[in-house]
């Protein structure tokens, strides 16, 4: 099916143009107020809520026929849900797709930020399950909206304080809360906190879509994003203390792979494109073979 295919029962990128306009308005508002959660009339999508319907709607509203789309889940292009979403846009928008980070004009992601630095010509769309960083401290939407409006964020630090008091460290390893532009506290979606530094001062436009919770928020390019911490317990972006066993990278986030039932395991880059291209360039890890 191509975009111009008049037999297609669906509009380009599935959503009708009125819906896209509504979503674009929400995106623009989000860009204008970085980190603020903009309510939007999320539509039912042909995939289940919680499976990326927010990200898919944001992507659908941003896509133009010239775009080249990359979809990753857990950093990989080949995980089932990434495949399913990529196929969806191939079918409904007929656009080109890629697995190469540098070639993509729009990247939809679940739970990772690519290792390869992004550029001003790229948009990164995050799938967000629970957009409210205060949700597990305060279950009521009416109350959390008020807390954001009044910058009433003391409770957030109480949570971090309790972590340190109990565990000696802040016990949040993913979906680590950040403060955007010295104003809104934001949930960066369940990316590992290793990725948090990449949120800040990023050249790409970063958009966040939560379908079930009907919220869109955004980080315009080069926005200051600070991970919450204490002066004497500063934020640390952590990862497994290994190098990638395939490409030898020491600075990328690693998945742990269980090799056998005798405790054998290896560590490999979670960003499959990053790893593949390093190996193609001749880098070899201690369990890898030259490409």
């Amino acid at each position: 099916m191509s975009p111009g295919d008049s037999d297609s029962p669906y509009n380009f990128a599935y959503l009708d143009e009125d819906t896209k306009r509504m979503i674009r308005r929400a995106i623009l508002k989000g860009v204008a107020v970085p980190g603020y959660q903009v309510p939007f009339a999320s539509r039912e999508m042909p995939m289940p809520y919680g499976w990326g319907t927010g990200g898919v709607q944001v992507t659908a509203a941003c896509l133009v026929p010239e775009d080249r789309l990359k979809v990753i889940d857990q950093g990989a292009d080949d995980t089932t849900n990434a495949v399913s979403i990529r196929k969806f846009f191939e079918r409904t928008a007929g656009i080109a797709t890629t697995e190469t980070t540098t070639e993509a004009s729009l990247i939809q992601t679940r739970h990772r930020i690519p290792e390869t630095p992004l550029t001003e010509d790229q948009i990164l769309v995050y799938q967000v399950p629970i957009p409210e960083p205060l949700r597990f401290l305060e279950p009521r939407e009416t109350e959390t909206r008020k807390m954001h409006a009044l910058e009433d964020y003391g409770l957030m630090h109480v949570k971090l304080y309790e972590d340190i008091a109990r565990h000696g460290a802040i016990a949040t390893s993913y979906a680590y809360p950040v403060r955007v532009g010295d104003r809104y506290v934001m949930d960066p979606s369940p990316i590992p906190k290793f990725d948090n530094p990449k949120l800040s001062d990023n050249a790409a436009l970063q958009l966040f879509g939560a379908g079930r919770e009907q919220r869109i928020y955004a980080l315009p390019p080069y926005t200051k994003v600070v991970s919450l911490d204490f002066e004497d317990h500063p934020f640390q972006a952590t990862k497994a203390e290994h190098d990638c066993d395939l490409c030898g990278a020491s600075d990328s986030y690693l998945d742990e792979v269980i090799l056998d039932d005798r405790g054998g395991r290896m560590f490999v880059c979670s960003d499959t494109d990053f790893c593949t291209r390093r190996r193609a360039a001749g880098h070899v890890g201690c369990l890898g073979e030259p490409a």
Partner: peptide
Amino acid sequence: LPHYVDFQSELEL
């Protein structure tokens, strides 16, 4: 759905 990445970071913590 896969949560390898989140689980990995929990594992390390």
